[in-house]
Each structure stands twice: as structure tokens, then as C-alpha cells.
Amino acid sequence: MAMRSPLVLVAMLAACEGAPSYLQGRGYVADREATLGWVLLAIASAVVVVIAILVLGATFRRRPPGGDLIREGGGMRWIVIGAIIVPSVILLGTTIYSTVVLARVARPAAKPSIVVQVIGHRWWWEVRYPGTSPAEAFATANEIHIPVHQPVQLELSSADVIHSFWIPQLAGKMDLIPGQTNVTWIEADTAGAYRGQCGEYCGLQHAGMRMSVVADSPAEFTRWLQAQRQGAAAPAADLAAAGEQVFQRSACAVCHTVRGSEAGGAVGPDLTHFASRATLAAGVLPNTQGNLAGWVANPQGIKPGVIMPAVPLRPADLHAVIAYLQALK
């Protein structure tokens, strides 16, 4: 029992590359939560080791050769020291420490200049950048870009059931609840893409409700913003242009918006710059031609229960739609 120190295992496994471990923070909030976490886990491990040793020691310690029953008396000191004094000191310390962390991470030092609205849907993330004027506002989905080293305010709400916004390496969870808007914030201290996932069970495809936050350098972020604010360019290639026709007259346009075209559906994700996103189907698949074709042809096969229906398309039309979507840079 004593040799199974949790800390060692945790340290070993937290080094696993790729896992979105919140013990390896990459943002202001997550850094502080991770430090708090390591302290708590260290105390916890020490307590478990001490107790295991005490249980073994109490069981196997040498005793004078015995008679019958042992009379009552003795032992209160164990309780006073072990169960009252020592834990009170430790718990008071951790309570104060954890309250301080809670206060520190509750809001950023300065009011963030960038606001991102995230609206939870079964099972994808609508992301809105309101900007400073209606002309600047645009919507995207499942991939949030932020500038590194800058606090970003998140306004979270839900269109249907409760979801939870969670990028383990940037910050802990905040729920998206119908009927209220929860405000929180994130700040990345290293550029890169961070995996996230819905943190509250929300039905059939809770497992398939993933996303990412990409922390860009300020220059990259500005470029990204400007590109996203534009409507989609008319497709240049013939195949893609044919695909746009298919998209407009089939069920696709009923649910999806492509700004700059006639497609203005509001049920599914905004696809204006779909090809600029790294994943599709809310972070479930890399955004490649093959995956995209498989997804459009049979969404239920990839995310059983997903609300997007399989739109019956002739192979040539499917091919054209894929070309169109891939042209939406």
C-alpha cells in the first residue's frame, strides 16, 4: 500500500504527450489551478502513505505476550492529535490557499478587450465574435482563436441543454446553461492549439462534442479576424461552383450559413470559412477531403445520434459539394 505513491504515477503519466492534462497548465487560470492541484495531491499522497503505515504498524507491532481482553482507556491522544489538531492545521492552510486561488482566477486584472460568445448546441459549439460594431461581428464554430498573452472574455449560454466549456490546459469548467449567461475568461501563455471537450453530460453525442482553442501571436490573430469577417469568396473552380449550386438547392443551405452566398440556415454551424478549420464534426475528425466526404455522406455513421441528417446526393453532386466546402478558406 505504502509503495503505491500516487504522486509518482501521476508524474509519470502526466508526461504523456498529447493528453490534455490540467496538471500542465498553459494559461493564467490553469497554471494556478495546476499548482494548487499539485499541492493538494502531494498532501493527499502523504496522508495516504502515513495512514497506510499506521495501519500496518498498528496491526503488526510487537506486543507483550497477551492474556485476554484489553481494558478500555488510552487512545484519546491519537484522536486529539491525529484527527483534530493536525488535520485542522492542514485544512485551514489549504482552505485559505484554495480561496486565494479562487479569488485570483475569478476575473482578470484588467477588463479584456476581446469578447467571445460561445453558445452550446447538441453537439457543437457556436462561436461569435461581436467585435466593436455590427459590421465587425461574425460567427464560426468549434474552433476559437485568441491572441496569446491577452485575457479574453467568454460569454457562455446554451441553445438547448446544459453543456460545459472546458479547455483543461487553459482553465477549469464553466457551464453553459439555458436561461442565463455565464461570464468567464481565458488567457493562454503559450501559443498553440488546445484540445477541449464538453464537460457536462449532454446526451447522445456528449463524447463527440469537442473543440479547440488556438492561441495565435497578435499579428496572426489580427489576420485571422480580418479573414473571418469577410464573406466567402465566390468559388473559382468549376467543380466548386457546381458544388455551391448543389449546396444551395439541397437541404444543406436550410441549416447552414455561408456568408456571401444565399445559404442562411441557422440550425447548424456557420460554414463561411469552413476550410480554415482544422477539424470537422465538432472536433471529431481532422478536416480532410476523405473525412469530409464520409461525414457529409453519412453523419450518423460517424456520430450516431447527431442531428445532421444524411442528405441524399448523387456521387457527382457529393463530389462537387466537397470541392465547394474545401474552397471555403
Partner: peptide, 17 residues
């Protein structure tokens, strides 16, 4: 002790669920 870890509110926002 793992319960104590979840009592620390800000760390629990990571641990929960």
C-alpha cells in the same frame, strides 16, 4: 483525500466531471 481535492473550488472546476 481525493474528496478534499474536490473541495478546493478552483481545482474542482478542473476535476469535476
Amino acid at each position: 483525500v481525493s474528496g478534499v481535492a474536490t473541495a478546493a473550488a478552483s481545482f474542482d472546476q478542473q476535476l469535476t466531471d
